[in-house]
């Protein structure tokens, strides 16, 4: 291929690079800077001279930030493993049936292509204390009505409802990806395993999961990062109040947006930036973890 087209290559890249310089690279850099500003007023572009770490200590000691960390991590560490295991089972089940595979796969994919807010509101109706479907369902097993998302709901109940919605919402993508990952596994391994008298469970445990492990790891990490950014699901289920009792279900992203929205208050924008940088660091740690684990464990 040609070698002397340096400037022409940059011309092709220019539209993307210029847009990204303005809306990706500069903001990334700027977020760090803002997080160290003193008494920043963003729209007026005024601030006290010098840099400070105070914003971070204020954020870290903020009650709502602690609540946000607790909520975010609880949500991520419970919903992600459950949805991964569940979607893996569903994908394997899909792969083992002789008929209707495409039909089931299409239905299972529906949550991915629907508006999260709209469906989240439907979940809110389902979780309604008095006339919700979920309490009705539980009553068939003799469970008394529970307030899941209302103003008297406990933290645990709200988290459970949020968890159910999050898992429901996130299954679609994982099922599709795992199902197509499964079809890429050489059928000979399954023939060999049958000849070796492996039971279905053994095949799942010792052939399918290990052979799929690079994909499982990749999906685990990306979903973990996705779950750490939870926000739309809280808006959908609880509205702008972020909880049955206001801010009960606040997440790191929600924290960032709350302080961003209050930009008129001196210094709040820097708190938002500090929160965003902390989130960035956490996701970076997970990405690093993926690199290390994938080097050590999953490759064969």
């Amino acid at each position: 291929m040609e070698t002397k087209n340096n400037w022409r290559a940059w011309l092709y890249l220019a539209p993307m690079l210029i847009l990204m310089a303005v809306f990706t690279f500069y903001p990334l850099f700027n977020a760090f800077i803002i997080s160290f500003y003193k008494d920043y007023q963003p729209l007026l572009n005024q601030r006290a001279p010098g840099m400070t770490l105070d914003n971070y200590s204020i954020v870290v000691n903020n009650y709502f930030f602690k609540q946000a960390l607790k909520n975010t991590f609880t949500l991520a560490f419970i919903s992600v493993p459950i949805s991964i295991v569940l979607s893996l089972f569903i994908a394997v089940a899909l792969n083992s049936i002789p008929r209707l595979k495409a039909f089931f796969q299409t239905i299972f994919f529906l949550p991915y292509v629907t508006n999260g807010i709209a469906v989240g509101m439907a979940f809110a109706v389902i979780f309604h204390r008095n006339y919700g479907l979920f309490n009705q369902f539980l009553s068939w097993f003799g469970v008394a009505p529970v307030d899941w998302i209302g103003s008297t709901a406990t933290w645990g109940k709200q988290m459970t409802a949020l968890m159910i919605f999050t898992i429901w919402d996130s299954l679609a993508f994982k099922i599709l990806v795992f199902a197509s990952g499964l079809t890429n596994i050489d059928k000979q391994y399954y023939d060999a395993a049958r000849i070796d008298s492996a039971s279905k469970w053994t095949i799942f445990k010792r052939i399918t999961v290990p052979l799929l492990s690079p994909l499982i790891l990749y999906i685990s990490i990306t979903s973990m990062i996705g779950a750490l950014k939870a926000y739309n699901s809280i808006i959908a289920l609880f509205g702008e109040s972020l909880g049955g009792r206001p801010r009960d279900m606040i997440t790191i992203v929600a924290f960032v947006y709350q302080y961003r929205a209050d930009y008129a208050n001196i210094g709040f924008y820097s708190y938002a930036a500090a929160g965003a940088i902390i989130l960035f660091m956490i996701t970076l740690a997970f990405t690093g973890l993926q690199t290390i684990v994938s080097r050590k464990r999953v490759h064969y």
């Binding site: 000979q188 023939d191 395993a193 000849i195 492996a198 010792r206 052979l211």
Partner: peptide, 29 residues
């Protein structure tokens, strides 16, 4: 079914389980 027939089969591409050691491959059946 094949697992009940008591046969050993060597596949054209061997179909060794790539994530298992030689020992685990032989132990597997």
């Amino acid at each position: 079914p094949p697992e009940k027939r008591g046969i050993g089969l060597v596949f054209q591409n061997y179909a060794l389980y790539p994530h298992m050691t030689v020992r685990d491959n032989i132990l597997f059946p």
